[in-house]
Design a protein around this nucleic acid. Structure first.
Lengths: 184, 184
DNA sequence: GGGCTGGGTTCAATGAACGAACCGGAAGAC
DNA sequence: GTCTTCCGGTTCGTTCATTGAACCCAGCCC
C-alpha cells in the first residue's frame, strides 16, 4: 500500500487482484476481499491476537492463516508485536489503520444480522460508557456519538448458539467483552 | 437468506462458505465476500444495470458474472426487471436490501482512498442537494445528515486516471452522476 | 533426553476462476 | 426471406488458490 496511484503491482499477476479497475474499492478489496481476511480482522477486533487462537476459532488452513497474517502485516493493518522473549513469541494487533475498519465491519455485520438472523441477533454491541446499544451505523443510542471500537462491548445475543463450537475463543466470547482488549 | 438461524445450508458444501462460524459477518460474507461480488454491487450503485455493461466495465468472465447475478438476485440484493418485451430484455437493479449496503460500501471505499490513493482521491462523493462533500462516514458536511445513496453524486477526483479503460461505463462515469440513476 | 507447545512450511488433491468458443432468439438491413 | 448483429447467456479445457494432513524446528519443562 501507499504506492503512487499508477504503481500498484503485485510481483506476480495472480487472480486475486483487480488491476484494471481504477478504483479505491478495488484496491481495498484486493487486500481485504480474499477469503478469510475479513473474518480474521473481525477476530482481531474481538481481541484475538495469537496464531493458535485464530486457528482454533476460524478453522482456517494453517498455510492460509500464515499468508493472510503476512499480507495484513505488510499492508499495515496488523502489527507484529513481541510479547515474550523466551520463548520468542509474537502477537498480531490491529494498527490505527486496521482500527479504522471498525465502522465498515460493523455495518456489514448489522446488515447480516438484519437479513440472516431469523432467531434474533447473534451478538449485541453496546457503548460501554453508556451501557446503551449501538444503532446500525455504530452510533450510541444514548449519547448519540459515533462510538470508537475501544468503547464498544460485545456480548452474545438471543440468536447466538453455543453448541456449534467449543474452542477457547468461542468460550471467552460467551462473556461480555470489550473490543480490542486481549481475549485470552 | 432469511432462513432460521440454525438452518442455513447450501445444497452443496462448496469452499466458499463459513459454515462453522455462528456469526452474521460470516453469513454476510458468504454472499458478498466472493470475488467480484462487491465490485458488482458498487457498479449497481453507479447505475450499471445490464449484463453487457457489467461485463464491459469489470472484465469479469461471463460465466462468473452470470452466476453472481443469479446469486445476488436469489439473495434479494438485486431484482431482475423487464425493461423491454421485444426483444425480451431484463435489467438488474438494487433492491432496498441492496441499497442498505451503501454505508458499508462507502466506508470501504473511503478507507481505500485514504490508504491507496497517493495521487488524491479517484472519486469524489457529494450530497447533491447541498453540493457539499461527504465525510468518511457518509455524512454531508453542510447539512450534517447521513446521506442516502439516491442523493449522492459521484464525480472523478484528482487521482482518477482516464487512460486505463475505455468502455461505455467508464466514459459515462467521467461526468458527474447521481447514484442509482441509470448510467446508460 | 523426551515430550510438549507455538508457529509455522510442504505437498497432493480439489474446486473455483479464467477466457475463448459456441449458442439461440429477436431485431434490422438488404 | 436470408444475412448479420446484438444481447445474454452456456460449455469446456486450463490455470490458480484453497484445503487438510503431514512434517518441521526452536525453546521450554522435567
Amino acid at each position: 500500500m501507499n504506492e503512487p496511484t499508477g504503481g500498484y503491482h503485485r510481483p506476480v499477476a495472480l487472480g486475486k487482484n483487480y488491476e484494471r479497475q481504477d478504483c479505491s474499492f478495488a484496491r481495498a478489496l484486493e487486500l481485504l476481499g480474499e477469503r478469510w481476511t475479513l473474518l480474521l480482522v473481525r477476530d482481531a477486533f474481538y481481541g484475538v491476537r495469537r496464531y493458535a487462537d485464530f486457528l482454533a476459532h476460524l478453522d482456517i488452513p494453517r498455510a492460509v492463516l500464515a499468508e493472510r497474517l503476512r499480507t495484513l502485516t505488510e499492508a499495515g493493518v496488523l502489527a507484529r508485536h513481541r510479547y515474550s522473549d523466551s520463548p520468542p513469541r509474537d502477537e498480531y494487533v490491529l494498527t490505527e489503520r486496521g482500527r479504522e475498519l471498525w465502522g465498515m465491519l460493523h455495518q456489514l455485520g448489522q446488515w447480516g444480522e438484519r437479513h440472516t438472523s431469523a432467531g434474533g441477533p447473534r451478538r449485541l454491541f453496546s457503548h460501554a460508557d453508556c451501557d446503551a446499544p449501538l444503532d446500525p451505523r455504530g452510533v450510541c443510542e444514548r449519547c448519540d456519538r459515533l462510538v470508537p471500537p475501544e468503547e464498544v462491548e460485545v456480548r452474545p445475543g438471543p440468536g447466538a448458539r453455543d453448541d456449534l463450537r467449543d474452542d477457547p475463543v468461542s468460550r471467552a466470547l460467551r462473556q461480555p467483552h470489550r473490543l480490542l482488549e486481549p481475549l485470552l
